[in-house]
Nucleic acid binder design. Sequence first.
DNA 1: TTGCTAACCAAGCAAGCGCTTGGTAGACTG
DNA 2: CAGTCTACCAAGCGCTTGCTTGGTTAGCAA
Lengths: 204, 204
Amino acid sequence: MSVSAYELSLQMARTPRLDDRRERLLDAAARLFREHGYERTSVRQLAEAVGILSGSVFHHFSSKEEILLEVMRSTIERMISSLHEASVSADTTEARLFQLIRAELELLHGPTRDGVAVTFFQWHSLGPDKQRHILSMREEYENIWLEALQQALEQGLIDTDPFVTRRLLTGANGWTIYWYQAGGSMSLDDLAGQVCHLLFRERK
Amino acid sequence: MSVSAYELSLQMARTPRLDDRRERLLDAAARLFREHGYERTSVRQLAEAVGILSGSVFHHFSSKEEILLEVMRSTIERMISSLHEASVSADTTEARLFQLIRAELELLHGPTRDGVAVTFFQWHSLGPDKQRHILSMREEYENIWLEALQQALEQGLIDTDPFVTRRLLTGANGWTIYWYQAGGSMSLDDLAGQVCHLLFRERK
DNA sequence: TTGCTAACCAAGCAAGCGCTTGGTAGACTG
DNA sequence: CAGTCTACCAAGCGCTTGCTTGGTTAGCAA
């Protein structure tokens, strides 16, 4: 952040900045895909959002589908690290599940919301191969959930099948993007609390 | 099924059958929209599914969007009557909620699954006006839920906000179309039981 | 027999799509 | 200073899309 960092940023500003445009394209794609859906977003719209022409998009990505794949790939990475962080931050199983729920809701409604919403609800826009690919990437994410739920089952905190419970939870949490307003009277902690309340009996 | 019915079917085969083709188009549309999504289903595919050419589709419907709207409209009607039937069939609030959950899951996985899945997950493919229209149609359906949940709250069966609870339940149930296999080891009653188990403490 | 209508076909239009091509300005490299 | 490379533009290609148009056939009523 000292002089050298400043000079570096100046140099980067003068030199071609592939990563910058690429990143901006991914951000715009996540936003547009979330707002209008993958199919309804044209490459031309995407290009306009970052101030280039449609053909130039294919200098950064080989196809439109690859953009969607890359949005999901980078999103899943962030999802995994967020969830992992939440998982290790708690010392009891009960607290761990609360943190996991909170983390997932924050992923869905915080700054990462565009990419996460796209990853949750638009995987069917990918071809079969790439669909399998991101599905296998999500496994690591789901495993964190399943481990915590298995633990909760063994400790008698829940008495439902971890797999089924996780699936129901996925739907409940994911669907919040269609009704929960982050700025409203209900805080994200409130929401997480309500979800938690459905999982186990007691939760303060 | 006697001679007269046979003659009737012969006559129907000879006479123009607008309603028949219309109905078949709606069925095919529900199936194709569910399988590939609205945007990825072309009018030509739709026409081919019922054995006519693409232009002929517009003799029955004024636009592709109207087909989607009509699929949703007729589906919501069936959803409301199914839910109403389930609601009045139970005499206790607890049983009523179980029946509601069972009914919604049956809508999602029974013969109506195509239209219901489309109604649940593809309303964003409609223009803003028609989106509001089917949203207002769904209100009656949601009100049945909210009344039952309000009743359960007053009787102490649940202790969460009915509105929030319903939204979480909507997601949990709706998401089952992505993982629950109707023919598998888990029956629909089992699934309904699991969902119910998350709602209140005890449920045999 | 004539007239009317529902239900369709055959052909194709205008617009938009994802993507390709050939070229160029500007910064860096040897 | 020549050569190279990145990042882009300008133009447009081939294809698909939703939808239209004009005409045809079969059934029915008067």
